[in-house]
Design a binder for these strands. Structure first.
Lengths: 151, 151
DNA sequence: ACTTTACCTCAACCATACTTGAGCTTTTAA
DNA sequence: TTAAAAGCTCAAGTATGGTTGAGGTAAAGT
């Protein structure tokens, strides 16, 4: 290894348990960054590992790559992120998670009473009602989530 | 309307707030059923409404159409499902939801301590660790979820 | 009767999140 | 020094969950 503080794409992939192609993909999507060596090969700073771990964690929470990217965009570009930087992300997702957990719990509690009940007025049924979805929008900046409803 | 107890694809779509194409799609995927009238048009029994409401609810819970289909397969084919039939589904998903909520809560609690921490050994980090995923498998029959891990 | 609306099939297309493969270059290890 | 391993780019393919459009038939309204 030419530099202890520098990672090749293969090393990162192996360390993180993901494929090289995924790293390419994330880079192309703007989720991670690299520079090139003389032979045009990607090189990474060690903090890419944490970035990837955060990406993977966020995905487990059901956050899309787009939103993850938006959130990661708040990390400083010019310097290596500090513990505080990462904790801001954490706080953000923590809030969103609380939200999501609450929604799931609500849904769970609706299940028993609703599935078997006589309420076929789907527009009023708590199970079917899309109101709950709104809460998701308080994560990440701007979020042009302009999905129109079906007709 | 020729028959009060019979629904056309358009009526169902409007009532459920989904598109006709979605109904076609669900039928093609085996999630719902219909018979044809003399002019080859789809006709539905009223319980298709509940079926769709359940499908939509399950999707909100993050269940895939495949799993939903597997679970719906437990409903009787020969007769209209009873309240008990629907409640069996409900119970099943209720359990799964509890599971998922617990996992999310765990993840949420890991967030603060992990994102900012020094643990870059991703294979051990509770945030990154895929162990939690196993719990999902207790929903639906058989589930040949043969995804090999990345290398 | 005739026009409009609804419905039909089939193929193609969209987004997300990646993976695979071809063809070629760079690094690394014996 | 040379062969294997690793990396590069770009295009195409995979799976999920639908949507859109073309070209044609059926049913409903007036």
């Amino acid at each position: 290894m030419s530099n202890e503080a520098t990672w090749s794409v293969g090393r990162v992939a192996k360390r993180c348990g993901i494929k090289v192609s995924t790293l390419h993909f994330y880079e192309q999507k703007g989720l991670i960054r690299s520079w090139r060596n003389q032979g045009n090969q990607r090189r990474y700073k060690p903090d890419v590992l944490r970035r990837i771990s955060v990406i993977k964690a966020a995905q487990k929470l059901g956050i899309t790559l787009e939103k993850i990217k938006d959130t990661l965009a708040d990390l400083p570009d010019n310097r290596t992120p500090t513990v505080e930087d990462w904790e801001r992300l954490s706080t953000r997702w923590h809030k969103m998670l609380n939200n999501r957990i609450a929604r799931l719990a609500k849904l769970r509690d609706s299940l028993g009473s609703c599935i078997g009940c006589g309420c076929l007025s789907l527009s009023k049924c708590p199970l079917y009602n899309p109101n709950d979805e709104v809460a998701e929008h308080d994560i990440g900046p701007v979020l042009l989530n302009s999905k129109s409803s079906a007709t």
